[in-house]
């Protein structure tokens, strides 16, 4: 056989032997960390609901995962989780879009005041920028403001302290205040608030917008934390619903494709940015019975565990999972908290 540019390529370059014929989570040399994460690294986690698995795994491995608003002593773990304690670096809840993260950092730095920051329902009041962390809402808009001020102060410290931000990009679809551009993690009317199309507009961000948002976000944080590095992932969790005219499957593929492309562009643009292929590991056709549970959205716990095991092993923080070894089944309480599943209630 004559010479070919594929001659001498490693096993990882070929589907057969790289994916086919090996276990779904035994992919050889899939992830090559660009920078090390050690037990001493101060890790800040954020992102869509899949990101909560990342934080839990890193904590489980004994890493210094930042928790700027820890659950107070005496709070049972299940209550803490329900109220957004210990899920991410601070109690900001799920950050589904890059613009949402950018906006949050702008607010922390005093560069932005969100529009319509309080949503009301049945006499209770929710922080519109993190409606999931107080499931029952608060008694007044003033309480929302007071708790948000304390949250932002804690978050500011966490952002300065972080060495690596592990950010899981989840969605491109967003709900935006027409006049100011403020985006919200959920559509008004889902958890609280009122849906008013004259005030709120639907946006489906494209590659250019997500890139612009991330570049702005990175630049803002570099001013206060110049050594910060980023580890990006894309959430494999499909959209619960789309507000586009597309089928939800098409909309999901579009959304994930945009985010995946953005990650590649960003990784190529800076040595400070890395990408971990959790999305690929879940979507791989190598899973004999699929990577999702019966709802076809939630990633099976053993798959999550396997993925995080690969991540930790790549950083020398855990031994490589044994090929084909059945993973343990994490506690059901580890299930990610995703507000977007509430959209199911609006099905016909």
């Amino acid at each position: 056989m004559g010479a070919s540019p594929y001659s001498g390529r490693p096993q990882r370059a070929f589907w057969r032997g790289g994916v086919a014929g090996v276990g779904p989570l035994d992919l050889p040399d899939l992830y090559r960390p660009r920078f090390p994460i050690t037990p001493e690294t101060r890790v800040f986690t954020a992102g869509s609901c899949f990101a909560s698995h990342v934080g839990a795994a890193l904590k489980g491995a004994g890493l210094k995962v930042i928790d700027a608003e820890p659950a107070p002593r005496g709070m049972p773990p299940e209550v803490a989780r329900r109220f957004g304690y210990g899920v991410y670096a601070a109690r900001f809840g799920n950050i589904y879009t890059v613009r949402q993260f950018r906006q949050l950092v702008e607010e922390v730095l005093g560069l932005r005041t969100p529009a319509l920051p309080v949503w009301e329902k049945d006499g209770r009041h929710w922080d519109a920028l993190r409606p999931g962390v107080e499931p029952e809402g608060l008694a007044s808009p003033e309480q929302v403001a007071e708790m948000r001020a304390q949250h932002l102060a804690a978050l500011a410290g966490a952002l300065r302290e972080a060495e690596v931000i592990v950010f899981t990009l989840g969605l491109t679809e967003a709900w935006e205040h027409r006049e100011t551009g403020t985006v919200y993690p959920t559509a008004p009317g889902t958890i609280a608030g009122a849906w008013d199309p004259d005030t709120i507009a639907f946006r489906n961000h494209g590659v250019a917008e997500v890139l612009e948002d991330f570049t702005a976000l990175e630049g803002l944080l570099a001013q206060v934390n110049p050594d910060l590095r980023w580890l990006l992932t894309v959430s494999p969790v499909p959209l619960a619903a789309t507000a586009t005219d597309d089928h939800v499957l098409t909309a999901t593929a579009r959304s994930k494709a945009v985010l995946r492309v953005v990650c590649d562009i960003l990784r190529d643009s800076s040595e400070r940015i890395d990408y971990f292929p959790s999305y690929e590991l879940v979507m791989s056709p190598a899973h004999p019975s699929g990577a999702f549970t019966g709802d076809l959205r939630s990633v099976r716990p053993e798959v999550v565990e396997g993925i995080m095991g690969l991540f930790l092993a790549a950083h020398g923080l855990a031994p490589l999972p044994e090929a084909g070894a059945p993973a343990g089944t994490p506690d059901a309480a580890d299930a990610a908290i995703c507000e977007d599943i509430l959209l199911d209630a609006f099905r016909p």
Binding site: P76, V79, F83, P135, M147, Q150
Partner: peptide, 23 residues
């Protein structure tokens, strides 16, 4: 946060306090 006194401690909601206590 629902109660009037402040000691510059972390704020939690009365709903959270109640849920934690009941659990």
């Amino acid at each position: 946060v629902d109660w009037p006194t402040r000691r510059d401690l972390p704020l939690i909601s009365a709903a959270c306090f109640q849920a934690a206590m009941e659990t």
